[in-house]
């Protein structure tokens, strides 16, 4: 960690991050008893969850952090298109879809420039 002697150890930081992450899950359990599973609030919360996840996944593809940032956006989007096409052509075959999409992006990133 940084040289500022007062910094907690990485293990303490990890523990705080664990608590900060679980907080949302635990809060969800605590609040869920008050939600009517047939009501509008339940439908709205589901929409928020799906929108957040779609936003996260699409951000991971469009502007990734880490090693994927070295690949081109067009290569990644082409891989997604290949994955979706294979998935539906082969009756929702996830294995082939994932493998095809990843392979397409890697081939493009390696040989197409």
């Amino acid at each position: 960690m940084s040289g500022a002697g007062g910094d907690p150890s990485p293990w303490v930081i990890l523990a705080l991050c664990v608590a900060g992450t679980y907080l949302w899950r635990g809060l969800g359990v605590a609040l869920s008893g008050r939600i009517d599973p047939y009501g509008a609030v339940f439908r709205w919360v589901g929409c928020v969850a799906y929108a957040m996840l779609a936003g996260l996944i699409s951000r991971m593809i469009v502007s990734p952090v880490g090693p994927l940032a070295q690949t081109g956006l067009a290569d990644r989007l082409a891989g997604c298109a290949v994955a979706v096409a294979l998935f539906f052509l082969l009756r929702r075959n996830l294995v082939v879809g994932v493998a095809g999409g990843v392979t397409a992006t890697m081939l493009l990133a390696t040989y197409a420039r």
């Binding site: 992450t21 969800g28 919360v45 957040m52």
Partner: peptide, 13 residues
């Protein structure tokens, strides 16, 4: 991790 709140809320019922 804020996404876990609506996710848990949607699953728990």
């Amino acid at each position: 991790a804020a996404r876990f709140l609506p996710m848990t809320l949607a699953l728990l019922p």
